[in-house]
Amino acid sequence: MQNQFHSLRNFLRLSVLMLMLAAFAAPVAAQSVRPPGNAVNLDDGIEEGPSNALGDLSDTEIWDNFRGGNPRDIFAPAPEGQVMTTTGQQWRMIREKFIRKYLGWAPLIVIGLLAVFYFAKGPMKISAGRSGKTIPRFTLSARVAHWFMAAVFIILGLSGMIILLGRVVIAPYFGLEFNSVLTSAAMQGHNLFGPVFIFALIWLFIKFIRGNFFQWVDLKWISKLGGFFGGHVSSGQFNFGEKSWFWMVIIVGSVISVTGVIMLFPGLVDDIRWLQLSTILHALGAVGLIAVAFGHIYVGTIGMEGSLDSMLKGEVDENWAKEHHDLWYEEMTGKSASETKAPEETP
């Protein structure tokens, strides 16, 4: 009985608190910010709380009552019927102390490493020079599927980063107001483009699954570190790096898709912990993909001469194919990939 009374009183207190907050916020908001169209209507008819609105309890006690269980043990599972769960705090801690603090560095570190590599070793040239003859590598529909994914990826990556890190990266320098506007925009864009990503992912999977299964030759590629530090590596249509990237996109992309759908439609799950897990997996997966994507972009553009042709024109120089995908070259043309170097050896 006592307990119930406490709960009711606390609820009233909280209501008043929120009303007051809203009242203070209103004039500020009226200048340029409106409450979201789908926001909760705060005008619920309660005009005033009881005179001893704050009651006799301390703040800690109020919150303890809400949370239930052992207030000091944030890892304890929430008892049935409790208003607040302790996992919320856990989730918040992971988000604040780990994801927001460290995760943003991952892409920057990759960019830094690539820059070091670029300035130390320079781009990988076609050592035999361009032959001027080309062979087809990607069909038009494969190219369009790729660039479609690329475009959606960039939009989602940028907006996602703003949502995740705007508070710690943008707000301190450009102000809360600016960050709020940016985040609102990013959130809407992110939600709208999310489903498109799933479509792009399926399309990409269908177009690129052929040639992306792992083979024994990939082990050699790994042992030679992909030839990034010298030495010739053999590979088929796709090398180990490309295959790994493909499967990473597909698998991590699927995780991002599923968790994204859960966040977009929270009603799909019945336990809030699924939502909390989703946000964490979503952020981890996405930042991981973004970080590796920089590597992918590097090798596809300035890092390797002749690579970009394959995705823009669909055709690659024969010498590029011989050097980077010799087995595929032989399969495509029926010629030996090393024959151009051989003529002097014939007796």
Binding site: S32, R34, L192
Partner: peptide, 15 residues
Amino acid sequence: MLSGCFALEQAHDSL
């Protein structure tokens, strides 16, 4: 189109 979708929340005049 993109700016239109950014402004969907209807919360910020600037958007």
